[in-house]
């Protein structure tokens, strides 16, 4: 069970903010609130760490066809800039 200060985030709310936190999309106040929650909650620290590990593991799945993806990406870039984007 978590130990938390009275006005602390609920864990169930904090875990729903993990992606926004990692994306740097939390407004400053929410970010501070989130980080303060982490200080008091080992469960959410474990959760965040798991998500980071998962993202790292997913990156190992990239296959040699990445070369083709790279080409696709460049083509998309050229396509968009040719349209004045």
């Amino acid at each position: 069970m978590s130990r938390a200060l009275p006005r602390d985030l609920d864990c169930i709310v904090a875990v729903e903010q993990v992606t926004d936190y990692l994306e740097g999309a939390l407004p400053l106040e929410a970010r501070i609130e989130f980080e303060q929650h982490l200080v008091t909650c080992p469960g959410c620290v474990i959760y965040l760490r798991q998500v980071r590990a998962q993202v790292a593991a997913s990156g190992k799945l990239a296959e040699p066809r990445l070369v083709a993806e790279e080409v696709t990406r460049k083509l998309l870039e050229m396509f968009h800039s040719s349209r004045g984007g």
Binding site: M1, D10, V13, G43, C44, Y47, Q50, A53
Partner: peptide, 13 residues
Amino acid sequence: RWAGHWAKWPEPW
């Protein structure tokens, strides 16, 4: 007392 908090912390991987 602990509504919305972990029932049990996740197991570290």
